[in-house]
Design a protein around this nucleic acid. Structure first.
Length: 592
RNA sequence: CGGGGCGUAGCGCAGCCUGGCAGCGCGCCUGCUUUGGGAGCAGGAGGCCGUGGGUUCGAAUCCCACCGCCCCGACCA
């Protein structure tokens, strides 16, 4: 490939709108270009990276025994009404009306379409298990697209769906996808962590997310460095603190005291006003659990975890109560709610149960009460872990202090169960002729996010550092003199040999000064740079340099192509071995 | 959807407050010089100043409305 004839519009300056490193660098490297909010063109170089990620995914999915198909992005909304997600998906679903007045949607995901397909085509246990996948453009009306290609309204997703006769089969399908994902991300050279995620109806280990730690990640990952426990903050449990002794509460603790706190509504305001630490305060939140008002009591500096709250109340739905409902349920407006003499069901977070005394709202306008003793002044008969885990909290497995990191979600595997098969009537007949809903799993990978994550995780002050398997071209051959002559001849000969060996090579034949060309090559981040110049050629030498290494090495021109091929082979082998090591680590972890 | 910021050449920006020739740097084109880390000189092309309305002799500039983009928050099956 000759650079001079390609379309690679690199930018010297940083576009003003870009903030995230991946956004800035993909723009500057001439790989993407913005059309509108959350809509990007992939220019030739960017598309090559996207296609490489796709090809790698396809290989591993096929190797794992999944079958590729392609479903329509354009779907009748009837299917969505059938599954019940027309309502639950809400505004995120892109709807349109086509000629004839038909109401359609652009698929944000394909559970409905595939379930519709499977209910027609699969009818016997003999056809199970089976896993089907596609790589296709998804549409979501994101309220706030951001960070370049990280969150867009239109994106490329690999989505797979497994269909099984029973839970054992499902576990097998799930494990196969889990392993395939690990192999894919290993081969991409991404530093990912697997975390437990919100699991839905089946519970247990029914959902995992694959996260790449990076500052622009939109999720929070809680990790235990001692034992390796990792979970999404949505899911992470708070363990028992090892030093947690029951609080020393003397029986003759003074009675609580009401204080006037005019206009002090937030925890911060109240604590500043009363000059107490937020950790000694409590906040009462009111939710509607299946439509009925319920209360939870948390320490002032903690955050409620709505998933945990919903499960603690055994409710199917949970929503924050509106101000009117709160006033009706507690007799007080937001800002002055407290647990004393509360009339609605209340669950107390474990952290509050461990406090000696607590400052809470007085259930009366402009009144808070101090010196409230849990267990004496309000009941502690229902306590649970109902808050978000945070930095320093004890690990649920080993009790060590956990850390919080920002993470970018690049993959998600999920045991769906029979949610869609039941709603849409996808059943099979077992050996006895009994009709049984198929058990489903779904497995997604954000292909664009692999590209973005690779940049987020691999860049320096000079630009991108592509992993070998994702790079648009693995090698950039840079002749410093491009007029016909020995330098160009040598460069072309090297390009030819590398291309014949199956590598992607770009020849920077632009008539530019060396510094200019080096800057571009570094910015785009081709893994291996080969420089041929008059100066070196006089000595019979050319130069090769890895993007991720500081120093270049010189090799004899006569054997240059062989040296380069040896370098590439060694790098591939190193990566392959790393993949194998990870694979055996996973096997060891599984069997232990 | 709430809060904030910004729309002027392909990119980065100045000009706006205080109305009166539409500018600068990068990039692009031509020529000469230069050639191992984003070269120098000379010449040149490129604009519905986001859109619509208003005020005014006159609007990039003042007023109103709309549209778009970015950031923070809410939201994220």
């Amino acid at each position: 490939m000759r650079w001079s004839s390609a379309l690679i519009p690199t930018l010297k300056e940083t576009p003003a709108d870009a903030v995230a490193p991946s956004h800035v660098l993909l723009l500057r490297a001439g790989m993407i270009r913005q059309l509108g909010a959350g809509a990007y063109t992939y220019l030739p170089l960017g598309l090559r990276v996207l296609r490489k990620a796709e090809a790698l995914i396809r290989e591993e999915m096929d190797a794992a025994g999944a079958f590729e198909l392609l479903m329509p992005a354009l779907q009748p909304v009837e299917l969505w009404k059938e599954s019940g997600r027309f309502e639950t998906f809400g505004d995120l679903l892109m709807k349109l009306t086509i000629s004839g007045g038909h109401h359609m949607a652009l698929g944000p995901t394909h559970e409905e379409v595939i379930t519709d397909l499977v209910r027609d085509l699969i009818s016997s246990y003999k056809q199970l298990p089976i896993t089907l996948y596609q790589i296709q453009t998804k549409f979501r009306d994101e309220p706030r697209p951001r960070f370049g290609i990280l969150r867009t309204r239109e994106f490329l997703m690999k989505d797979a769906y497994s269909f099984d006769a029973d839970v054992d089969q499902l576990n097998g399908s799930y494990d196969a996808m889990f392993e395939a994902y690990c192999r894919i991300f290993d081969r991409c050279g991404l530093p990912y962590v697997v975390v437990e995620a919100e699991s839905g109806p089946i519970g247990g280990d029914a959902s995992h997310e694959f996260m790449v730690p990076c500052s622009t990640g939109e999720d929070k990952v809680i990790q235990c460095v001692a034992c390796g426990y990792a979970a999404n903050q949505e899911k992470a449990e708070v363990g028992e603190s090892p030093e947690a002794a029951p609080p020393a509460r003397s029986a003759d603790a003074p009675a609580f005291e009401a204080v006037r706190t005019p206009g002090q509504k937030t925890i911060r305001d109240v604590c500043n006003f009363l000059k107490v630490d937020e950790k000694t305060s409590g906040k009462l939140l009111v939710y509607l659990a299946d439509g009925k008002p319920v209360a939870v009591l948390l320490r002032g500096d903690h955050e409620a975890n709505e998933g945990k709250v919903r499960r603690a109340f055994g409710a199917a739905t949970l929503a924050p109560a509106d101000p009117d409902a709160i006033l009706k349920a507690t007799g007080a407006p937001i800002g002055f709610l407290g647990p004393v003499d509360i009339k609605i069901p209340m669950i107390v977070d474990k952290a509050v149960a461990a406090m000696e005394t607590v400052v809470v709202g007085g259930n009366e306008v402009d009144v808070h009460i101090t010196g409230v003793v849990p267990g004496r002044d309000f009941k502690l008969d229902r306590t649970a872990d109902i808050r978000n885990a945070d930095e320093g909290d004890p690990c649920p497995r080993c009790g060590a202090a956990m850390v919080v990191k920002a993470g970018l979600e690049i993959g998600h595997v999920f045991k769906l169960g029979t949610k869609y098969s039941k709603a849409m009537g996808a059943t099979y007949l077992d050996e006895k002729g009994t009709e049984i809903p198929v058990i489903m799993g779904c497995y997604g990978i954000g292909v664009n996010r692999i590209v973005a994550a690779a940049v987020e995780a691999g860049h320096d002050a000079n630009g991108i550092i592509w992993p070998l398997n994702l790079a648009p071209y693995q090698v950039a051959v840079v002749p410093l003199q491009v007029k016909p002559g020995p330098v160009m001849e040598a460069a072309e000969a090297i390009e030819k040999k590398l291309a014949e060996a199956g590598y992607d090579v770009i020849l920077d034949d632009r008539d530019q000064r060396p510094g200019f060309k080096f800057k571009d090559v570094d910015l785009i981040g081709f893994p291996l740079r080969v420089v041929v110049g008059e100066r070196g050629l006089k000595e019979g030498q050319i130069e090769i340099k890895w993007r991720h290494e500081a120093e270049a090495q010189t090799v004899p021109l006569a054997t240059a192509a062989d040296s380069i091929l040896a370098e590439l082979k060694a790098a591939e082998e190193k990566l392959h071995n790393a993949c194998l090591v990870n694979r055996s680590k996973r096997q060891a972890a599984k069997s232990s």
